[in-house]
């Protein structure tokens, strides 16, 4: 019987959607192997209140380590607590989210436990007995199928790929005393960014702009389209407009930016260079708006509109808004 641990991320005391994804992926794996999945939640003193909901995604037990030092992500404190918890237990597989927290945390835990990490996976399959992990490489130009010759097997999962699924399990909350690590780095200051807090790599809807928008002042139009989708949408950008200084690098989608897999990706005025396509080709539905009917982006788009973004985008924002309200 296999034992799987899913690291379940919280923010401000609430369990994040990405945690539902990771626990659901663990539950699916547990079904395949006849085992069970536990969740691990670290956070501040009140985090146990929310942790029980993970039972609804298949977690038999939810282990909660609460401490003031863990209320917000702190690399050394989290790495110590997670590594110590895993060392004191006998999990075969440990799953992390491959979001910005998980990409920082999972390699540290792997090194502390002296086991490899298969990062940013898009598929898990244990039907042949051994866990096979699929993960994109070369920014999605090639898909690798790998396995890990060590225990526990550490895997981080790409956001938005593993669908949260309701499964009723006990979700029994057990608290433990997290091991306090020595903080090697200090947080001096946190500055809020302009625009929304949703990261382009995690957002279920991405509205992305390219050089076809002609200048940074025209992004207001894209912001309106983003807002039409509510709080689950984020802005993205092509490399060309980031290089031109129109948009911040944090928004860049593609091989030297972020790889995204949203449910809906809307490319506006983006021609679709190979580096860009590599970063978004696993999106669920792709919409392209471009005035050049021969633009390569139309080769990967499910739906295309050939036309002037300045006419199409405001109309689309309006129609999406009324469709969602209606």
């Amino acid at each position: 019987m296999s034992k799987i641990l899913a690291f379940a991320e919280q923010r401000d005391g609430g369990i994040r959607r990405v945690a539902h994804e990771v626990v659901s992926a663990g539950a699916a794996l547990a079904e395949q192997t006849g085992g069970e999945v536990h969740a691990l939640v670290l956070g501040g003193q009140s985090v146990a209140d929310a942790a029980g909901e993970l039972g609804g995604f298949g977690a038999a037990v939810v282990h909660v380590g609460a401490a003031e030092a863990l209320a917000e992500y702190a690399p050394d404190a989290y790495a110590s607590a997670v590594a110590a918890f895993i060392r004191a237990s006998d999990y075969d597989t440990v799953l992390f989210p491959a979001d910005s927290l998980g990409k920082d945390l999972a390699p540290r835990v792997a090194a502390r436990l002296d086991v490899p990490l298969a990062a940013d996976a898009t598929g898990l399959d244990a039907s042949g007995g051994e866990l096979r992990i699929t993960r994109p490489t070369y920014a999605g130009k090639v898909i690798a199928t790998v396995s890990i010759d060590a225990t526990p097997k550490l895997v981080s999962l790409r956001p938005n790929v593993f669908v949260p699924q309701q499964r009723q399990a006990a979700g029994e909350v057990k608290t433990f005393e997290p091991e306090a690590g020595q903080a090697r780095v200090r947080l001096r200051e946190r500055k809020a960014a302009q625009g929304g807090a949703m990261d382009v790599a995690e957002a279920p809807v991405v509205v992305s702009g390219g050089r076809g928008l002609q200048g940074p002042d025209n992004w207001e139009m894209l912001e309106q389209l983003r807002d039409a989708f509510g709080s689950r949408a984020a802005l993205g950008a092509s490399r060309a407009v980031v290089d031109a200084g129109w948009r911040p690098h944090a928004e860049q989608v593609g091989q030297t930016g972020k790889t995204v897999a949203p449910q809906l990706y809307i490319a506006v005025g983006i021609s679709g260079a190979i580096q860009h396509l590599a970063g978004m080709r696993t999106a669920g539905t792709i919409v392209a708006i471009n005035k050049d009917a021969d633009a390569p982006i139309f080769k990967v788009a499910d739906y295309g509109i050939v036309g002037d973004a300045f006419e199409v985008v405001p109309r689309l924002a309006q129609e999406v808004k009324s469709a969602r309200e209606g």
Partner: peptide, 26 residues
């Protein structure tokens, strides 16, 4: 200790359709 069993190309996306031209296609 991370073994590569297979490399493959990602499935080709099916080429979609052009819904129309301009704002009227929205």
């Amino acid at each position: 200790r991370l073994r590569v069993h297979e490399l493959s190309y990602p499935p080709e996306r099916q080429e979609g359709r052009i819904v129309g031209e301009g704002a009227d296609a929205v």
